[in-house]
Design a protein around this nucleic acid. Sequence first.
DNA 1: AATGAATGAGGGTTCATTCAT
DNA 2: GATGAATGAACCCTCATTCAT
Lengths: 204, 204, 204, 204
Amino acid sequence: MDSSSTRRQNTRRKLFAAAVTLIAEQGFSSTTVDEIAERAGVAKGTVYYNFASKTDLFEELLRHGMELLTGSLRAAAEEAAERGGGRSAALDAMIRAELDFVARHPSLAQLYVAELWRTNRAWQPTLTRVRQQAVEVIESALREAGAEGDPLAESDIPLTASAVFGMVLVAALDWRSFQPERSADDVHAALSRLLQGRLNGAVR
Amino acid sequence: MDSSSTRRQNTRRKLFAAAVTLIAEQGFSSTTVDEIAERAGVAKGTVYYNFASKTDLFEELLRHGMELLTGSLRAAAEEAAERGGGRSAALDAMIRAELDFVARHPSLAQLYVAELWRTNRAWQPTLTRVRQQAVEVIESALREAGAEGDPLAESDIPLTASAVFGMVLVAALDWRSFQPERSADDVHAALSRLLQGRLNGAVR
Amino acid sequence: MDSSSTRRQNTRRKLFAAAVTLIAEQGFSSTTVDEIAERAGVAKGTVYYNFASKTDLFEELLRHGMELLTGSLRAAAEEAAERGGGRSAALDAMIRAELDFVARHPSLAQLYVAELWRTNRAWQPTLTRVRQQAVEVIESALREAGAEGDPLAESDIPLTASAVFGMVLVAALDWRSFQPERSADDVHAALSRLLQGRLNGAVR
Amino acid sequence: MDSSSTRRQNTRRKLFAAAVTLIAEQGFSSTTVDEIAERAGVAKGTVYYNFASKTDLFEELLRHGMELLTGSLRAAAEEAAERGGGRSAALDAMIRAELDFVARHPSLAQLYVAELWRTNRAWQPTLTRVRQQAVEVIESALREAGAEGDPLAESDIPLTASAVFGMVLVAALDWRSFQPERSADDVHAALSRLLQGRLNGAVR
DNA sequence: AATGAATGAGGGTTCATTCAT
DNA sequence: GATGAATGAACCCTCATTCAT
């Protein structure tokens, strides 16, 4: 039936929502299935009717959330390309997209940094794959930006891309934790300047 | 009782060493006291003879490790100041120090990013304090660097400092996880170039 | 509503068939309603539409199965009486009937021995009653056989009957589990010889 | 230390004792670890400190218990041989030993018949092995008994042995469940007569 | 100073049963 | 007549902590 399938989808959505927040706050192991169920407003058994295990719920959640991230990075890059901003406009647009993403889904960002570099975790492959996708979007922006001026050495590109990606992520998390009163524009501008080389005023 | 005090210190050291690695790999909650004891080569009871609790062991460990980090950043800054490198030499030295730190203590770095932005954790204050100290060292480097050229707006300094700190951290973790074959010099150079404004070529 | 009543009967039959096999293999508690429903090719709710509970399904099943057993023993006895085989022909016919029964319904036999001597089980009375009926059929065969020669002491009869019944049951189960290649005739002959006193040769 | 090893052994013994009774009464799956621990007078965690799992506890228990059985059958056979009883004295002694065993450990006997012919259970191999050993003891008794008179066909021996073994087992269980007032001697005599061929008085 | 057996609260998971469709 | 999503009690097992040795 359609209605029952809809009902199920709805239950899953509620469980996802409950799980992200809790796991981001407390970590995967410290979050209990009881808590997730209670927060989602369903019985504990319902979690297991909808997901094979706690780990499975978490993995599906990660996959879903991380696709949102790469999706919005890609959208930002394309949009910038269409607008023909040239230069580093695409890079700038992606910084903004990443910033906005963290603002909208802080829990996912928190999860990402907490889990990405761990070894021996069931969902590590999923994360690595997502990281790869996100970083690739930035890499191409770097290549195109380089084409207009002094190009970066090819070997530097992956490292630089991941550094930029990580920097924005960390800066965004710091922003929300330690200076939540600043505006997104403000933070964006500062990061933008940093990456435009105004760092030490050496504009020469 | 010098010998016995030594013996105790030695046991504690073994427990510290066992705990960092395991917790970095698996997270705090997923690491059991049994595992720590086994890895350290002592009986389970011994852990409780030496530490009040699992949390306590972890907090002492964090405090110890984080002092190493701020210590080495400060040392790098001072050394650079003495050598009078000027301009961005101090900043460069700190990048290098942070990179080396992650290379030497990857587990601690991993722990740091996993726990820093979490709320409601016993050791969160410890981490925030450490972050504050580290960022301050970078802030003064930024101020001094700025004094030689176009200064950064004062309001940008904390944000930029934390962004730089975070960027290096993330880049270093990525380096160890995904491109371990690169040399520290190589990674250092790439980050340095990025921060020197070569990102999108001559901005003229 | 003949057609719908037929449909219902059919569903119940499918559920019975699925349940016997599974419960014989895994035991009552280890068999889940989900498994039974899946094996029967119906939805889980259907089980509860047709039976009050899992226990109820099992009891109806047992009752049904055990009536088959006593029925076939009785039929064998009667038939032998009609053919007037005399002596131990009736006993022999019953051995054969029991053997055939186990061959045709191994799951039921398995269930019987697994549950008969347990205490505190809901269906224990059912089983005891069946045992009583089966043993009685054999008892009368023994009495009649005895009438032709040296009679067994009356007090020995119930014990002997239950021993014979049990022996055949166990031998049949062993046959199916450990020597399935032997023919029913073969096994029958061996048991028959054993009960005819050829065990240790001529006792004379 | 010796004392702590003794303590552990003692705990294990208590757990074994608690588990046999409960599992024989209720079956493996229906018996909870809580019940076992409570009956043994220890905490639930203690069960898991001493055994890897509930299944493991059960398997060790089975192995232990079944070795007692084969041991006592073998002892009975040897003793009879020494006493030079000849004829079917050895077989008789083993019947008696089996009877006594069931009287002393009814729970084990109950477990045996309940589990032996099940498929797909973790401990099935253990049981089959034990069965094999027990039956072999009887087989050699049959061969020797046969040597003094009309020998059984070689192909009949395994089947006959398992039939005798099973018959005594079932008879003993019936005895304890349905006619507990009879003496062991009495039951033994009836079974003995049955196997000596007095069944239908055909002593000819 | 160290050990390891024992504990019991609490977590993940299963499953018979209910109920709205 | 049948379905399948949802439930929650109860189960197996884990693990930080205690304590007698």
